[in-house]
Amino acid sequence: MAKNRPIKFRILELFLDKKEHWNYEIVSKIQEEYALKGNYNRDSINFDIIELASGGMLKDVEQRVDEEGIYKKGFLLHKYVITDFGKVRGSDACLRYI
């Protein structure tokens, strides 16, 4: 596991299982692993996911409204899956050392 590696490396590594993940699942996992508490860090990690998606490494596959306030009440939740390009970049960055 890529502990103490850059956050985007770890996010890509989590997606390398090729399964679909909701953004709030990834964000809370990273917050816990890196001991990054608070709303500011939550939004910052979420922006990392948005950047990975805009770089073509993750794909936004499903959205739903956060009715229960699981992440941010009344906002959209996004589900992502890794792309082929993301697999290449992710394994370049993460798997070389494993």
Partner: peptide
């Protein structure tokens, strides 16, 4: 508050 991430990234010389 990104000094931690700065050090983590600096250490990844080869991929990053």
């Amino acid at each position: 508050g990104k000094y931690g991430e700065l050090v983590r990234t600096l250490k990844e010389f080869n991929p990053c």
